[in-house]
């Protein structure tokens, strides 16, 4: 942990008062930032300065700051979650930036994720997709004894890989079509790999995909950008699973 200091950095940040207003870029300078500071800690420092200068601080979503809640999501220098792999914005550290650098910070850009202030977007479309079928129909109290359902470790691992999606929206932000395919595919793959999820697997694929289209997300661009920027390494092979479930469901109909 060799701490270094970035003597000066320039920040070009998207500012927007609210959902209705027009946005613009503003530029700020910041001095003496430790390379051990996280990106969001750097943003905190910026905001402390702005408040004392009487400027409205920059609004951004964040909560757990350990890469699991999925709240944070900044588009930094043209990349979702910035210049590092397999991380969320809150796990990005200033050691990834050079002295004197200009850092461009934008919100997720997608029709289905409208900006509500500065770097904050409305991702409720993701919740609505989940409500369309991202569950197993089981009431509390009616479950069978756990070990009566045997699951081979490989299926459990595949399910777990897909289930680790944190719903941050980086896949949508990275996609030139703003598609939510990876997000939908992750849930479909998670549940389709478990015996408990099989009875509703086809219905789930159809309903979630339909909702995704309704909410204005684009079609899959097949570029794999989503997989590259996914902080949890969700594989695009899940999209193949989604397509398979979807097609076979349509054949059944």
């Amino acid at each position: 942990m060799a701490e270094k200091i970035l003597r000066k950095i320039k920040l070009k940040i998207w500012r927007q008062e609210n959902a209705q207003s027009k946005g613009y870029f503003d530029t700020y300078e910041l001095e003496n930032i430790s390379t051990d500071a996280s990106f969001l800690e750097m943003m905190d420092l910026l905001n402390e300065h702005l408040i004392m200068e009487g400027i409205d601080p920059v609004a951004f979503d964040h909560d757990c700051r350990e890469g699991i809640c999925g709240s944070c999501g900044l588009f930094i220098n043209g990349r979702a979650h910035g210049p590092d792999n397999d991380i969320t914005t809150c796990q990005l550290h200033m050691r990834k930036f050079r002295e004197g650098a200009t850092i461009v910070i934008e919100p997720w850009r997608a029709k289905s994720f409208p900006v509500i202030k500065d770097l904050m977007v409305d991702r409720s479309a993701f919740d609505i997709i989940q409500q369309a079928g991202g569950f197993i129909t089981i009431n509390t109290g009616s479950a069978v004894v756990a070990n009566t359902i045997l699951i081979d470790p490989k299926s459990a691992e595949t399910a777990m890989d897909a289930a680790s999606c944190i719903g941050c929206g980086a896949c949508v932000a990275a996609c030139k079509n703003s598609s939510a395919m990876l997000f939908v595919a992750a849930k479909v793959t998670h549940l389709a790999n478990l015996p408990q999820g099989k009875p509703e697997a086809k219905k789930r694929a159809i309903q979630m995909a339909k909702k995704m289209d309704e909410l204005g997300f684009g079609g899959c661009s097949n570029t794999g950008a989503c997989e590259v920027e996914c902080p949890k390494n969700i594989s695009i092979s899940t999209i193949a699973t989604l397509n398979r479930e979807y097609l076979s469901a349509n054949v059944d109909q």
Partner: peptide
């Protein structure tokens, strides 16, 4: 506590498994 595990498995929580498929 045991009911909780039953419930979560039924919901599709991908708990770690042994080779034979048990929890």
């Amino acid at each position: 506590s045991g009911n909780i595990i039953d419930q979560c498995v039924a919901q599709g929580v991908p708990f770690a498994r042994e080779y034979g498929g048990t929890l």
